[in-house]
Simulated assay, not measured.
Amino acid sequence: MTRNALVTAARGWIGTPYIHQASVKGAGCDCLGLVRGIWRETIGPEPEAIPPYSRDWSEPQGDEALFRAALRHMRRKPLDDEAPGDVLLFRMRAGSVAKHLGLQAGVGMRASFIHAYSGHGVIESALSLPWRRRIAARFALPTETN
Rank of each mutant, 00 (worst) to 15 (best):
E48S: 13
A69T: 12
R72T: 01
A137I: 00
E46T: 10
R55Q: 13
L103K: 00
R36D: 11
R3Y: 09
Y117M: 09
S58H: 13
H115G: 06
G85V: 03
P130H: 08
V107C: 14
S118R: 13
V35H: 07
E59T: 07
E82N: 05
A83E: 13
P78Q: 04
V97K: 01
R138M: 03
I123S: 00
R68Y: 10
G119I: 08
Q21E: 15
H20S: 10
A140G: 01
Y53M: 11
W39P: 04
R55N: 04
P52W: 13
I43D: 05
S125P: 02
D80R: 12
K77H: 08
A65N: 02
G85P: 01
A10Q: 03
G28S: 12
E144H: 08
I19W: 12
G102C: 05
R91Y: 10
L103E: 03
E144M: 10
M92P: 00
G102K: 02
M1N: 10
L101W: 11
V122W: 08
G119L: 09
Q61S: 11
G102R: 02
G85L: 02
R55F: 09
S125I: 00
I135Y: 07
I19F: 13
A94R: 11
Y117G: 03
V24A: 14
G102Q: 05
R76P: 06
A116N: 04
H100F: 11
D80A: 13
E48C: 05
A116Y: 00
W131L: 05
L66N: 08
G37N: 06
G62P: 06
M92G: 08
F113H: 13
I38T: 04
I114L: 05
A70V: 00
G15Y: 12
T143R: 03
R11G: 01
G62M: 09
R11A: 04
A5R: 03
I50E: 15
F113S: 01
T16C: 09
K77Y: 05
A9Y: 02
A136Y: 11
L32A: 13
L79A: 08
L34A: 07
I135D: 07
V87P: 02
D80N: 14
A49Y: 04
A22M: 14
A83K: 07
I38Y: 07
A22I: 01
L101K: 03
P60I: 04
G37I: 06
T16Q: 09
A98C: 07
R75A: 01
Q21I: 04
R91F: 09
D63P: 01
S58F: 14
D80V: 05
A111G: 10
H120Q: 14
A140I: 00
I43C: 06
G121Q: 03
A70S: 12
T8S: 12
G102M: 04
G95E: 09
H20P: 08
P51E: 15
S125N: 05
G85E: 07
H20W: 15
P51I: 10
L103Y: 02
G121I: 04
G37W: 12
T42D: 01
R36M: 15
L127A: 04
G28N: 11
D30H: 11
G28M: 12
A111F: 05
A69D: 10
A98Y: 11
G26K: 03
C31R: 02
R133F: 00
L127Q: 01
F67S: 12
G108I: 06
